[in-house]
Computed example of a mutant assay.
Amino acid sequence: METVSIRKTVLFVQILILLNVSPSIAWCRFPAFSKLQLPLQTIGPEASAFDRKGGGPYTGIADGRIVKYQGPRVGFTDFAVTSPNRTKAKCDGKNGPELQQICGRPFGLGFYYKTGDLYITDAFYGLVVVGPSGGLVTRVPSFQGRNFAFLDALDIDQSKGVVYFVDSGAIFLTGNRTRIVESGDTSGRLFKYDIATKQVTLILSGLSGPVGVALSKDNSYVLITEYIAQRIRRFWLKGAKANSSDVFANVDGIPDNIKRTVLGDFWVAISNTKQPTTFSLGQRINRFGKVVETCNFTAQYNSPNGITEVQEYKGKLYVGSLDQNFIGVFGV
């Protein structure tokens, strides 16, 4: 047992060196692992959200449903659907991409606490919203009357009632990671949706595979993870640099969702494919763009797709994925 422990420690240090992270600042505070099991025959809890009362997590899964966790005795129950064409007989438990244009594929989600409404980005149905009681969503107006190519993540400015969301680009419809990364595509865009005026505005284009969005604690900028460019871009909302962007941090690996912590740091889900095994890592980055903590989730997420999100909520990490049948929970 001692030999195995030493080997694991050496491997972890090697990963940190590979990622240019100092082991002295990267110790993971969340060793305890448990699962929130999804309904039978379902996979793909890409992202999570908690309502204003702390209920949840809510997550979108591959068969088109948004489900809500109701505790260990009940588990997950149906909450909402994004497609008006969806039927339980046709879609429930069907996880293949061939049905997602009919059943829907919800990715990003977040609550607007003032109303309790849940906003969702669906890859095929765009930006949608559903009330606190759930059910069938309502579609938000598109941009200039045109459908989005492939919506992914969102974040909400709770003080101003603005939803920031990204269109990753049509290349993501292929579902082929290698083809996406090697494409060099720069058709990705960042939008904002004003809840009061119901206006959608394009605020940044030329993004290389945007897949994650997170507002800073003071709402002065928004961070966008770029899947293809393997970096985090910052778009300034306020101050002397308003309406301009710069590179916040480069990532050694493929980044996915980015989520802000209560204290103002950011967790980024990263898949590193430079080794024979895909490493699934969560990195906490401070407001200066420096990595201050790294958690290795490879043992629990040993698949080519890795992980999609790391969200810290009330002292625990909630980890999402595209191909697993659970949400991972890591605690102290």
Results as ranks from 00 to 15, higher is better:
158 Q>F: 09
180 I>V: 11
192 K>T: 09
185 D>V: 05
160 K>C: 10
39 P>L: 12
87 T>N: 04
41 Q>D: 15
13 V>R: 05
289 G>K: 07
209 G>E: 07
124 F>W: 14
189 R>S: 13
232 I>W: 06
193 Y>E: 08
233 R>L: 15
251 V>K: 00
161 G>E: 05
33 F>K: 09
23 P>W: 05
112 Y>T: 00
30 F>G: 04
304 P>T: 09
31 P>L: 06
108 G>I: 05
250 N>L: 08
291 V>K: 05
257 N>K: 04
126 G>T: 09
246 D>A: 13
164 Y>C: 12
298 T>R: 07
294 T>E: 15
22 S>G: 09
61 I>L: 14
202 L>S: 01
20 N>R: 08
65 R>V: 04
186 T>R: 13
95 N>V: 14
139 R>A: 15
327 I>S: 13
110 G>A: 13
179 R>E: 14
317 L>R: 05
233 R>M: 14
101 Q>P: 00
137 V>A: 15
223 L>Q: 07
31 P>F: 01
4 V>D: 10
15 I>C: 11
228 I>R: 01
114 K>Y: 07
133 S>C: 04
291 V>R: 03
21 V>E: 12
142 S>W: 00
25 I>G: 07
148 F>K: 04
43 I>E: 14
329 V>T: 10
162 V>D: 03
287 R>K: 11
94 K>H: 08
48 S>A: 14
7 R>D: 11
22 S>F: 03
173 L>Q: 12
77 T>C: 10
13 V>N: 12
47 A>T: 14
70 Q>N: 15
62 A>N: 15
205 S>D: 15
27 W>H: 03
1 M>A: 09
84 P>Y: 08
260 R>E: 05
158 Q>T: 09
201 T>Y: 03
102 I>N: 05
48 S>C: 14
192 K>Y: 00
64 G>N: 09
246 D>M: 04
284 R>W: 02
259 K>P: 00
84 P>L: 06
11 L>N: 13
20 N>Y: 03
90 K>F: 12
278 T>I: 08
116 G>C: 13
123 A>F: 04
276 P>A: 08
261 T>Y: 05
224 I>V: 14
